[in-house]
């Protein structure tokens, strides 16, 4: 059993990263519980009569000394749009920490982390937490154009950064699965992790399966509660329908019916 909390945080910063992504940093008066890459929070959307349920977001960074955590919010619908209008000093309620984390790499593992769009958040968090030397960690980021990429240059301290864009405006042109880092020698990696659009993760999973490389993906099915009681966010797996919120959101691709 993992302890979960409903906690009011205060917004420290809401920074626009590009046309659709925002970085929201929040602070708690309480000591933060341990939070691992891949876990998520379920956020209350205040003052929006048309929005009834919370919205789930991956955790991007945790600072236990400052009692802060951050999320990258991509505007997808009414809820996320409303949330990006939040301002420093506002109060925000979280149900957290939710879900299972990625499997940590072993010492000496070579890993490839692939993030699409706002799916970069847990990938960067995992790169930082992995404790591996830079040369063992490749991060491959995909987006439609350079404008859609989130600036993450500071993560070059933790990993080799590679970019793919559909229009070729940054990095290699094409999807992440067409990028040379992905196509050259997938077997060179001990573990592949991915977070992003469904189509992207399925394409990655297919290649990882063929190459017989350990691969975990983070799913984002529609959910209501976030803690395993509503049974709405189910994903068919080898164990039957499982909850993305409690059995995931991270799944080994071999468990999925993909």
């Amino acid at each position: 059993m993992s302890k979960k909390f409903v906690t009011d945080f205060t917004v420290v910063e809401n920074k626009k990263l590009n046309s659709t992504n925002f970085l929201i940093k929040i602070k708690s008066d309480l000591i933060l519980p341990e939070i691992k890459p891949g876990q998520f929070v379920n956020v209350e959307i205040k003052d929006a009569s048309e929005i009834f349920l919370r919205r789930p977001f991956s955790i991007f960074e945790v600072d236990y000394k400052a009692n802060t955590l951050s999320m990258i919010i991509k505007i997808l619908g009414r809820g996320s749009k409303k949330l990006t209008q939040i301002e420093a000093g506002d109060s925000i309620s979280l149900v957290y920490p939710l879900g299972k984390s990625f499997t940590y790499p072993k010492k000496n593992d070579r890993i490839l982390l692939i993030g699409g769009g706002s799916g970069v958040a847990p990938m960067l968090f995992l790169a930082k937490e992995s404790g591996l030397p830079i040369e063992n960690v490749d991060i491959l980021l995909g987006a439609r154009t350079s404008e859609d990429h989130v600036d993450v240059h500071e993560y070059s301290n933790y990993a080799n950064l590679h970019y793919a864009s559909e229009d070729g405006s940054i990095g290699e042109k094409g999807f992440v699965t067409q990028h040379s880092v992905f196509t050259t020698n997938l077997k060179a990696y001990n573990k592949i992790y991915a977070c992003g659009p469904d189509g992207m993760m399925r394409a990655i999973a297919k290649e990882a399966k063929t190459a017989e490389v350990f691969c975990e993906v983070s799913l984002e099915n529609l959910m209501a509660c976030g803690f395993g009681v509503c049974l709405c966010c189910i994903e068919p797996t080898n164990q039957g329908n499982q909850c993305v919120c409690t059995d995931g959101p991270v799944f080994n691709i071999n468990e999925l019916k993909w």
């Binding site: 009569s49 048309e50 929005i51 009834f52 349920l53 099915n221 529609l222 959910m223 209501a224 509503c230 049974l231 709405c232 966010c233 189910i234 994903e235 068919p236 039957g240 329908n241």
Partner: peptide
Amino acid sequence: RDGNAYPRMAETPSGMLNAVGLQ
């Protein structure tokens, strides 16, 4: 019981629909 297929929920004004199907 496996319950119904995804999607099983939809947010609606001041509420939600579910179709879990007794999983």
